[in-house]
Each structure stands twice: as C-alpha cells, then as structure tokens.
Write a protein that binds this DNA or RNA. Structure first.
Lengths: 237, 237
DNA sequence: GCAAAAGTGTTTGGGTTACACCCATGC
DNA sequence: GCATGGGTGTAACCCAAACACTTTTGC
C-alpha cells in the first residue's frame, strides 16, 4: 500500500507553503498589502525569494503545517487561514527531474496589522509589497497572484477584513482595509450602509476620543458567525 | 531533498480522486444529478463505495491523473474538470496508522448527458443519485457534499451548464440543466433574459422541429470565452 | 380550434450609487 | 468660528422577480 522503495522513481513528495498577507502603512501613510518571503539557500532557485514552506510532516494536519510554518518564519499567529490550491504541474521546477518532483499544497493567511509590526525580519526573511514583488522561485509569482485574487474576491462577500483589524475598530479603519485590499476608494456613506446591512459588525457603544473631529463609534465583529463561508467544509478541513 | 527511506515513518502518500457529475433522467422524466462510485476491494472500508481515484504517478500532472482515472472508471472524457480541494486530515481514515496516511487531491468533473448514457457500469462501478448516497468510505460523503456546493455556486456565475449539454441546445434544455442542478423551478421568461444578457450563448439560426408546439430556437455556446473564471489560474493548473 | 411551450412586454420593488447636507469634536 | 471627518437623507438608476400576454407549431 505504501509507496514501494524498489520502484525506479520515487513518489512525488508533498510540501505545504503559505501566502501570508498583512497590511502596513507605506511612505504616504496609506495601508498597503504586504507579505513575507524567504530567501532560498539552495538549488533550485538559490538566492531567489520564495514563499515560506516545507515538507509535510507525517503526523501533521495540512492546516497545522501551514500555521506552524507561518509561526516559524514570522513569529506570528494567523488570524485567518484557508487552503488556496494544490500545485503539482510537472513543469513547476524548470529542471524537472522526476526524482525531485514536489506537489505543494498552498494555504493563504491573514495576520493582524498590529501584530505584524512585531514580525520577524532578517537576512533571509523580508516583507514585500504585494504589488511590487521580484521574480520569485518556482511558480510562486502565479501563486501569489492567485491568492491576491481570492483575497479580493472573498473580501466582498465575507468577513475577512476582521483578519487585519484589532478587537474594536472604527468604520473608517474598516473602510481603510477594504480600500487597501481592493485598491480603490470607497464612498464612506455607502460603505457604512453596506456594512451595517450585512450585520456582521456591532457597535460597542464606546467612542474613540482624541481625534480632531467628531468622535467615531467603535465596532466589534459579531463573533457568533464565523469569518467566511466555506460551505460544507466547516473549519480547518 | 527527496524523502529519506531511513526515517522511521514514511512521508504521506499522494492520491488523486474525482467527483464526476452528470445528469440523468429519473423515473418521472426529470433530470437529476448522478455520479459514479467504485466499490472498494480491500481494507480499509472494504466493500463500501468510494470515489474513483488512485495514487499519483510520478510523471503525471494532477489534472491528467484525475482525467485518466475518470476515463478508466467510466470510459468517458470530462467536459469540464477543476480541482476541488486537498484533503489530508490525520483522521480521514479511522485506523489512522501513520504509515498509511494519504493526502487526496480531489477534482470534480462534468460529463455530458448524452455521452453518459454509454458509461461503463459493472459489479464494482455503479452510478448513484447525488442526493441519495449511501455511507461512503473515508470522508467521501463530505467531499461529495462540498463538490455539490461548488457546482451549485459556480453554475450561477459561469458557463458550467455547457458541460452537460450537446453542441446545440434549446433554452428549455439549458433551463432544465439549471433546474436539475439547483433543484428548483425557474421562470422561463426571466431565465431567457438572464442567459441572453450575459452573452455566453448565441442563436444558431436553426430551430428544433417535431415538438408539438412552437419550434424553439437552437443555441450554441460562444466558444471564444472559456467555461469559467479561475482568475489568474488559466486552465489546467 | 385547442393544447402547449416559445417568446415578449410591463410593472414593481429592492438594492446600489452619487452626492448634498448636518453633526460633534479639537483647536 | 473653522476645519475635519463622522454620520444621515435622498433622488436616480439598475436589475431581477412576477406575471400577463402574444406567437407558432402539432394534432
């Protein structure tokens, strides 16, 4: 049943990688999507940047593997984690010798903007703006593009924005998240109604003081319903 | 880099399975979703029904593996094929000895109703109504449920219905497909407008004769755009 | 003519967009 | 008071649902 070692070619090996998103203020103060990459220290693609990932341990669930790799490279816990896709094309690695074929199950994750300030950064771990990536190893540019596409799609019909925000927040902050992810300005009035009508968010009753304008209401996500609709797959499948 | 054989526990092995949908007329003439299952001939779950699948060959792309398994069990070619999800939880198999841990990358497929009439059926391959499945092996009930959810969702904002239909078809046939998949009646007038407005379908100019009412226009799918929107993943990733 | 489905027209209501306007605070 | 964003109101518009009605065939 298990793969015979006697066979000429070994079975494809399995890796788990993660696309990790957060929002960071850029030079002009606006929030922008950022993600951490690690520098490869061996062939193929030695010296190029790649998604954090590694082989799947035999006693580890897929999502756990993604989360622990996330923790390991950034020191952070994911606020949201979802499987993205399994990439297994034969031509993913250019040399493509059958002996080292790898199928990667890729997850994508969100980490809060506040936590992300404390993220690990080093010689081999660096955060990039999502729209200014260098040429990455393997098919990782495509993977990030796909993850971005999913994030943007899903933001519009789910409660994903929660993944970036602290416990309580103003509607302006929530709108900033949407504007940063979707990369377009939104009408504050209509945004408010959109958010209020879908019911995911509730006012705390408190207001944020210290601004030099009318103090805005603080809101909290309604914890009784989960972030997103995965259909029959509840959580963490 | 490749998995060491010396390690106490082998790496998880990789399998590809496929949920194959077609539409078949049931007793009362209405179309209903059906799918083929195969009977397991060894433990675990010996004698129970399961999704067609098998180990991934080292020189095979994931989608090719799914398609060839489809061909092998049904004798048919898929009209549509898309990756569904990678299932790899440790508790998928109840015994769950680490030595035979399997991660399954599951695809889902559509086959045309006409072709499906010629599908292979045997002692060990049987077609079931999608809403009347027995208790399946592993987590396959969940997998089918999820595939159904995706099919229903995607039908509404894509050209998936094409996967069931012959080259030319009437709007009534197209509507039948929608009604069968979504399991609810649709207003013919509004359905027509919906289809016409999205532009995926073009009139051939020919009409279907021999009905005992006004002869309906025959349509064809506009082949210039593909079935569905996978985002940055073009086709067959 | 009659039955049956094809195909068209029309009304209505809900939801989104654009934008004007008032409110409450710091300075 | 004034500037600044918070927050409310509203008219225009678009789109989808409901349903009445006309058209074209076989019998």
């Amino acid at each position: 049943m298990s793969t015979s070692v006697a066979s000429a070619i070994e079975a494809p090996s399995l890796a788990v990688s993660t696309v990790i998103f957060t929002l960071r203020p850029c030079e002009d103060g606006q929030l922008k999507l950022a993600l951490p990459l690690v520098k490869r220290i061996r062939a193929p693609f030695e010296g190029q940047w790649a998604l954090p990932g590694g082989p799947l341990k035999p006693d580890e669930d897929l999502a756990d593997a993604a989360a622990s790799k996330l923790k390991q490279t950034t020191g952070l816990e994911p606020r949201y984690l979802e499987q993205l896709y399994a990439f297994g094309n034969l031509d993913r690695s250019p040399m493509s010798k059958l002996e080292d074929r790898v199928v990667s199950i890729v997850y994508w994750a969100l980490v809060g903007t506040v936590e992300a300030e404390k993220a690990i950064e080093s010689e081999n771990v660096h955060w990039f703006w999502a729209d200014e990536l260098p040429k990455l190893a393997f098919d990782h540019n495509l993977i990030v593009e796909y993850a971005l596409w999913r994030l943007r799609n899903k933001l519009e019909y789910s409660r994903l924005a929660h993944g970036f925000l602290p416990e309580t927040f103003t509607l302006a902050q929530l709108r900033e998240v949407y504007e940063a992810v979707l990369n377009k300005p939104l009408d504050p009035a209509n945004f408010r109604r959109m958010v209020e009508s879908n019911g995911a968010v509730v006012a705390t009753g408190e207001r944020l003081a210290g601004t030099r304008h009318r103090p805005p209401q603080l809101y909290r996500y309604d914890s009784s319903i989960d972030l997103t609709d995965l259909g029959p797959l509840g959580e963490k499948q």
